[in-house]
Amino acid sequence: MLVDFLKGSALALKHMGNFIIGKGNVTLEYPEVKREQPAFFRGRHRLQRYRDGLERCVGCSLCAAVCPSEAIYLEAAENTDENQVSAGERYAEIYQIHLLRCIFCGFCEEACPENAIVMGASYELAMNKRTDFIAEKDDMLDPAEKGFGDYHEYDPYISHVTPESDKSAKGDPWAVKAEH
């Protein structure tokens, strides 16, 4: 009995000693170190652009239609020659997602024909006010400059595709859409 007791204590002591000399730590100290998310992670939404800065979203409202919790609100407007926002005929003038209603199911990115809305890798969703949880279009849109993050194409198995890895298979996803 006493021996078994000491055996158990020795195991705990070993773990403690290992930690003190710096081995066996399994904790990531979160605000300083962030965990790498897997490719299929469904985090905060992103609205993507083409390489020339035009938005991919054409305001078709398929995402709003498919959303099971009705978290997406979208108003479309026509593109004009003076104000060419997206690559198609129309663009989303207002695009809001209520993040408190969103259940992060990923149906929107599945439904999107243009690969415009995708689920990003960011999981830092805390806000100070309830109104802050309504994500406006500007909050989600990728910055207009070049080299803005990874291209993100919906794929039921692998979601994050970088331009380099994708080029060989599907051509250049960043390419300017020809028709406009």
Partner: peptide, 13 residues
């Protein structure tokens, strides 16, 4: 601290 060390984590810091 001691409990977290035994459990392989850094504890309150």
């Amino acid at each position: 601290k001691i409990i977290s060390w035994v459990q392989d984590r850094p504890g309150p810091n």
